[in-house]
Simulated scan of single mutants.
Amino acid sequence: MTREDLEARWFALTREELPGMARERGWPIHLDHCFQRILLDNAVGMAWRDAIRPPAYRNTSDEQLEKAVGLGEAAARGEEDLAALNRRSLAWRGKSLPR
């Protein structure tokens, strides 16, 4: 997959596919930038801004973006727990879910 294809897949996944599934899946998030945060944080193992200069989609390595896309595709298939990925992302940022 070329970098252009990888970025196109990233945006389709995080701007359309995952937000479109959010309500039916009962996911705690629905905005595109939240999906992007969760997937990138989990791809790099920390808050992405601590590892990648903004804009993230341009400055991630191919390997990081492939991992983030893979996590999103796995969540779409029901093979990754998006709520758990979100909790991990928030913990890296020193935040917790609202009660």
Rank of each mutant, 00 (worst) to 15 (best):
A91L: 05
L85R: 03
R87L: 02
G78H: 15
R77G: 10
T14S: 08
N42C: 07
S89G: 04
E66V: 04
K67P: 06
G20N: 03
V69P: 01
R37H: 00
I29V: 07
I38P: 09
P55N: 13
C34K: 13
N59H: 15
V44A: 12
I38H: 02
S61K: 14
L65E: 11
Q36W: 00
D81N: 00
D41W: 05
Q36K: 10
L85A: 02
N59K: 12
R87K: 01
E63S: 00
E24Q: 01
C34I: 01
A22P: 08
N59W: 13
I29L: 02
W92G: 03
I52M: 13
K67C: 02
L13S: 06
K67Q: 07
R15L: 07
F35G: 04
E24R: 06
D41C: 00
E63T: 10
W10F: 11
R77D: 09
G72K: 06
I52W: 14
I52K: 15
L39E: 01
E79S: 15
P28T: 06
L39G: 02
A51G: 08
D50A: 15
E17V: 04
P55C: 15
V69C: 12
L40E: 01
L71W: 05
A51V: 13
G70C: 07
G20K: 07
R53M: 14
T14L: 09
R53K: 13
G26D: 02
W48F: 15
R53L: 15
E63M: 11
W27Q: 09
Q36F: 07
G72E: 05
A84N: 08
D32L: 10
R37T: 06
V69N: 07
G72N: 02
E24Y: 04
S89W: 10
R58F: 14
P54S: 15
A75C: 12
A22W: 13
R15F: 03
D32R: 12
L65I: 11
L13C: 08
M21I: 05
